[in-house]
Simulated assay, not measured.
Amino acid sequence: MPSTKLIIAAIALALNTFTASAHAEAPALHAPNVVPISASIVTSGQPTAEALAHLSEQGFKAVVYLAPPTVGDAVPGEREIVQRQGLEFVNIPIPFGKPTQADFEQFVEAMKRFSDGKVLVHCQVNMRASTMTFLYRTTVLHEAPEQAYEAVAKVWSPKGPWKDLIVTQLRKAQIAFEPY
């Protein structure tokens, strides 16, 4: 009959193997300020090239990139990295100091196009992404602004042209909410 120590060692080995296989499913998204919004929308700052190369393994179907591809921390060839996995890629190059209603309208069109799959919305640090996603959630998906704004507040408190864009779009949609 096996000793108690041998039984405990076998159980520990089995648990370690189970735990390792459970953690080996899909790599985490390596990017600053990752904020999961729902099962189908995740916002973040700039993912690493390696993280971008593994998005399909995490169930993503599309990437919406909201910064100009010329910013200093942009990943060279991001479009190609994403498309090689069969994912769709949209770049809306919003200058940080000049977001416009047209930028938001482009964003809404992209999000509607990808509404049946998991989407990564990102920029450099998740300021553009969190704000545009907040506006989409409130004005298009009709989510409560207080709840939707929590995702923005995890990253930043919009000021200047970004706060102006929020206020303008909420008023246009007749949504009574004042961002912090």
Rank of each mutant, 00 (worst) to 15 (best):
H54N: 15
A31T: 12
Q58L: 06
L66K: 04
M127R: 07
S130P: 05
W162H: 10
L6F: 05
T168G: 11
R171S: 13
G86N: 13
A74C: 02
V152R: 13
F18M: 12
M127G: 06
S56M: 07
H54C: 10
H142N: 03
H23K: 14
A14Q: 12
Q58R: 12
G117V: 08
Q106S: 11
A67M: 09
A151W: 03
Q83S: 01
H30D: 14
L170A: 11
I7R: 13
M127Q: 09
E78V: 02
L52G: 02
M1Q: 12
R128Q: 06
P179M: 01
P2K: 12
T139M: 07
T4G: 01
Q169E: 15
P36T: 14
P76Q: 00
L165T: 10
A102W: 05
P69D: 02
E88I: 01
I7S: 10
E150Q: 15
G45P: 13
P179G: 11
T19M: 08
A53G: 08
L6V: 00
L170H: 11
A62P: 01
M111T: 09
V63L: 07
T19E: 04
A14I: 14
P158M: 09
K61Q: 02
S38L: 10
V121A: 04
E78I: 03
G117N: 06
I41E: 05
Q174H: 15
H54E: 06
I8L: 15
L55F: 14
V125E: 09
Q46R: 07
F107Y: 11
A14M: 11
V167Q: 13
D116S: 09
Y180F: 07
K172T: 15
V34W: 04
F89G: 09
L6P: 00
V63E: 05
V34M: 05
